[in-house]
Design a protein around this nucleic acid. Structure first.
Lengths: 152, 152
DNA sequence: TATTGTTATACTCTATAACTATA
DNA sequence: TATAGTTATAGAGTATAACAATA
């Protein structure tokens, strides 16, 4: 079970995943937020205001990069910066209603697009995919946690 | 079966897919080629030399964008430009051995990373995912073909 | 001294518009 | 005139290094 050639599990999953990634990437177009921006907005909407450093860590972006992203998003009215009352050095970034709207709208758009794909698929395939989702979810969770990259 | 809320198939697939996308995106780091560059190299390696316009269409990039990508890749020695003997306006872009090496190396790296994920997963989940791959592949193929975006 | 956040600067990638050369 | 490709220019996004303010 140590093979790495064309038979390994990773080799089998890779092309499928790559194709899906390419598809999702297309959706990140004009006025849609970037995937990192969306991650940040969702985090803020779900867990409340957060610090720049935490948001940077969450998305594996650099701290200056996060500052700039927050700056752009603030200019667009998606988030707001408020001084942290407990720590004079920090700021708390919070999502605005406009930001929440963007998350909802984007999420709906993506989901609908995927729905349309399912509509065109063999019902048996749909069934197979849906029943594999929990397992795929755990694979994805392992990917997010494990840090296979820096952990080498 | 027309729901779009939190129950629709797309809504269920989306978060899992998003997480996997984020994971794969991390892999696209320092010296690794971008996903578009990789697509181009694979296409050239698989189907032989191609025109700039065709490569742009394939990857849904703009023509100037493809010109620039080809330029960067040519500078790096991954591809070569040759005038099209049949059409004085066109050029044929071909992959070099170095380009083929990059594809192989990148592919192996990604596959190994996925393999490591599988190693950490419950065997039953592995089994489930692998048996769902054909269906997922057809979903991905539908995504690539259908053009749900411009087709709206 | 360490930490939080920002500014300065530079580089990659991509896009639209305008241009050149061939068909 | 239409098409293939390039150049010009601009903008988003990201990174590292240097800095300011607070702890």
């Amino acid at each position: 079970m140590q093979m790495v050639g064309d038979e390994s599990r990773g080799s089998q999953l890779l092309p499928v995943l790559a194709q899906l990634v390419r598809f999702l990437r297309q959706l990140e177009s004009p006025d849609n937020p970037s995937s990192i921006a969306l991650s940040v907005l969702r985090r803020l909407a779900d867990a409340g205001p957060g610090r720049v450093t935490d948001l940077a860590k969450l998305t594996r972006a650099s701290q200056p990069g996060m500052t700039q992203l927050i700056g752009r998003m603030e200019k667009s009215g998606l988030v707001q910066r408020v001084p942290d009352p407990n720590d004079g050095r920090g700021v708390l970034v919070g999502v605005t209603q406009a930001g929440r709207d963007v998350v909802a709208r984007t999420y709906t758009h993506y989901a609908q697009t995927l729905d349309r794909l399912f509509d065109r698929l063999d019902p048996a395939d749909c069934e197979t995919i849906l029943s594999a989702l929990p397992a795929l979810g755990r694979l994805a969770a392992a990917a997010e946690k494990g840090d296979t990259i820096s952990g080498s």
